[in-house]
Design a binder for these strands. Sequence first.
DNA 1: CACTCTTGCTAATGCGTATTAGTTGGGTGG
DNA 2: CCACCCAACTAATACGCATTAGCAAGAGTG
Lengths: 350, 350
Amino acid sequence: MAGKIRRGRPRQAEVAKLAGVSQTTVSLVLGGNKQGIVIQEATRQRVLEAARTLGYVPDPAARRLAAASNNLLGVFSFTATFPTDPAHSYYPFLVGVEREAAERGFDLVLFTGSSSGGGRAAAPGALERVRLADGCLLFGRHVPTEPLRRLVDDGFPLVHVGRRDEIAELAWVGADYVAASSEVVSHLVAAGHRRVVLVREDDDAPASTDRERGFREGLAPAEGSVVRVGAPADELTAEWVRARRAEGVTAFVAEETDTGAVWRALHAAVTAAGLRAPDDLSLALLGSPPPDLPLATPVTGFDIPRAELGTAAVRALTDLLAGQRPGATLARCAFRPGATSGPPPPGESP
Amino acid sequence: MAGKIRRGRPRQAEVAKLAGVSQTTVSLVLGGNKQGIVIQEATRQRVLEAARTLGYVPDPAARRLAAASNNLLGVFSFTATFPTDPAHSYYPFLVGVEREAAERGFDLVLFTGSSSGGGRAAAPGALERVRLADGCLLFGRHVPTEPLRRLVDDGFPLVHVGRRDEIAELAWVGADYVAASSEVVSHLVAAGHRRVVLVREDDDAPASTDRERGFREGLAPAEGSVVRVGAPADELTAEWVRARRAEGVTAFVAEETDTGAVWRALHAAVTAAGLRAPDDLSLALLGSPPPDLPLATPVTGFDIPRAELGTAAVRALTDLLAGQRPGATLARCAFRPGATSGPPPPGESP
DNA sequence: CACTCTTGCTAATGCGTATTAGTTGGGTGG
DNA sequence: CCACCCAACTAATACGCATTAGCAAGAGTG
């Protein structure tokens, strides 16, 4: 339907005709000429001039097909609702990705996934479109291992943003959730809390696993428990909060996920229970609150350096393109003291 | 330097061999077969089976090369600091652009590379790179007419986001700044202000011209003046504000630009003068405040429906690709009452 | 029985670029 | 003076798929 043939786009053959040389020469002048074939300066200039006159730009598909590169880096997200929901943690990364890509002279292709339209999960073959680019950045809490492995096995350059160890050869850049989570929990424990609960989603994304590990590490003298919720909004009720309080829990920690569902639900439940942080209990978030949820007080937690991760990812990807193994990146997250945590309420010291 | 591709991937030819048919047949079965060529069911199944066995996946580059279109919509910005500064009004549009592009099965290419790297203005030939896509969205307060005209004359499908009449054949989608600005100013006048000043940048982008027109239209019984500033931060000082106040000006209106410079400067100047809105004077902004400037109180003004404009732009562009003239779009902006305006201070009624 | 139609496929070609294997015309060396 | 080389190109081909123009075999007409 959209596939009108546009005669407007000039090809190398036309440039060649105008410059009075062969298409090969045009390719040599405009492409890298990696074979080091000698071309006279005068000819070179004629070709360049002709290309400029016609507004020639190489066709990325043809370039790719002929097994060269096209200065395009892909960005692919596995999350179903790729761009629709601004709450998704995708845009902040993009800022860094874009800056670094520009710096290195790459353009960006946003593979908006689906192609089937609508907010459904990505169509089966969607990931394969990525091959149009020279390499690709991957986002997403969960990734379908099978199609990915194919790309990896074919040697297609990929960098996943976020730790991802299922596929050994897949490069990734990530944030140190373990250390950051540990720091947040230590902060609570130092304030005097002795019973802390972590609320997390009921699946095993690395991002969750790491946070739980950090949670346990930071707990030290205190006692902690972990609650997995499948449907946060339903399971985290005011009664649930009261019951935990009755058991002596004075601090609640939620993990940040791409949708922010856990934190939203916890926050709502606490509010519904008529409790307030930091006076009645302490709240902390292993990450940042969703930007679309305006809060009066800053939340205790940590900030993921998303833009920096984005630039690191681009760097890793260009390393791969250059044939080097990229160095591992584990970015440090900044602790955010916030104002939702403090000492446990008076009557509750052990 | 880049782009080795390993040849592990099966092609149609291999599927064909396994199924005992020709490559054409494979293409027919696996591709759309839009020509309606009849294939026996048994053959079809054999091909599908073979494809599954080998794990065949079509090469997007080859597909696009053959189809003469590549399902790519471009996004290009003329602003020098294209992606670096998240304060630029570019991302909010992108949300809508991306959603609509996904809906219609297009991928997006962000032309940030410009081969110049760094934050400088786009390189001379940068715009030509755009031809890589099937069509392109254009952003920017100012656009270089000459290179643009070439693209337009070549029939390259372009849609500018924002009113743009210098080039007659250039399609655009815009917001109705005239009506929205008029509404904001009427609001001030209705509150009792009789002397209102508009601060705007000293150049003639359509976005500014339209706002000024709306400003004048909404002024009705009040008296207004327009101040053009070249270097907002330098020219808008505390003294300047005091001088205007002394002349009886009780309301200040700033235009929103891509950098937000005018509003930032006005806001800073008022603060420096020790004045507060809405008690000492009223402030309004013809647009939204830059997101990176956190303000305690919401600002009187209007909200540009950026995401909607983004989707409208994509719609217009795909219309162009389909060979139809897109309908004009002039989106309505929502009035935002805010809390920086009110009646003029008591002693100052006429 | 000579003929046209259909059915179900295949051979050939084009898309735009990169690369490999030449080709030409003018020196050089021996 | 002739074989040889070199500089500066060009012709030909491959890349993987879509598409167009066939083509063989059988079914249907008159």
